[in-house]
Nucleic acid binder design. Structure first.
Lengths: 118, 118
DNA sequence: TTTTTATATAACTATATACTCATGTAATAT
DNA sequence: ATATTACATGAGTATATAGTTATATAAAAA
């Protein structure tokens, strides 16, 4: 088992924390196919300008996205596409959980039915 | 770009939230090489019994770990080792960030030095 | 049966953080 | 110069959650 010090756990936790927010995930997903400016992300996410801007600032500070100002606009883009591998893994996990739950549910239902029929 | 509904973002965020806590990461890492009971995890993590127990209950409710009671003890184990792929990816990200930062720092320092020498 | 051991949980506190509203700032347009 | 557009940020509020303390529960030992 790899031994990590407390600081390492804290760093990893902070990283996951960034992804532990629906609006931020939405924003990141919105940037999947290329840079977008703040207004575009506001429209896309359905959030308020202030809130989206704050999330962008956080993601930028953590270096998950980068900012480029052009004129009065600020364009944000993904720094490393690998971030989507993480999300993909989680989606896979959740999909599996749900299919497992569905299967369990089905077998529960059929067990109930066969009991009712006996 | 894949379109996800708000519920999907919420689910994914909740999953990441589970990993966004140093003590829980420590516990999960402690289970990497096989099942352990609560006392062992308390000793290993340095947390209190109550706190470790709570985290275990959370991880269990989310189906990241499973519980098996034997006698007075409760043994917990990882449900799907894929969880460590996630942590591995994040560690990789952080390692890269740090090496990038180190490189930037070095070039900053050498720039300062050459300026001082001029 | 009583005690001990191992674990879970309820009540509470402290802290972090997501959000809103209002305002600041900076580049462009008029 | 002034107004407008695009974005960032400070203050304040509400909520979530990690942690502690005390207690409940349940199996095993005495």
């Amino acid at each position: 088992m790899m031994q990590l010090d407390d600081q390492a756990y804290a760093r990893i936790a902070k990283y996951f924390q960034l992804l532990a927010e629906p609006m931020r995930l939405k924003i990141l997903n919105g940037l999947r196919d290329g840079e977008k400016n703040v207004s575009e992300l506001v429209a896309l996410s359905g959030g308020t300008q202030a809130n989206v801007s704050k999330h962008l600032t956080m993601l930028c500070a953590a270096n998950l996205i980068q900012r480029e100002a052009r004129g009065t606009k600020a364009y944000y883009s993904i720094v490393d596409q690998q971030i989507f591998d993480l999300c993909g893994l989680v989606c896979g996990q959740l999909a599996m959980q749900m299919s497992t739950a569905a299967a369990a549910n089905e077998s529960f239902i059929s067990a109930m039915q066969s009991q009712a029929n006996s």
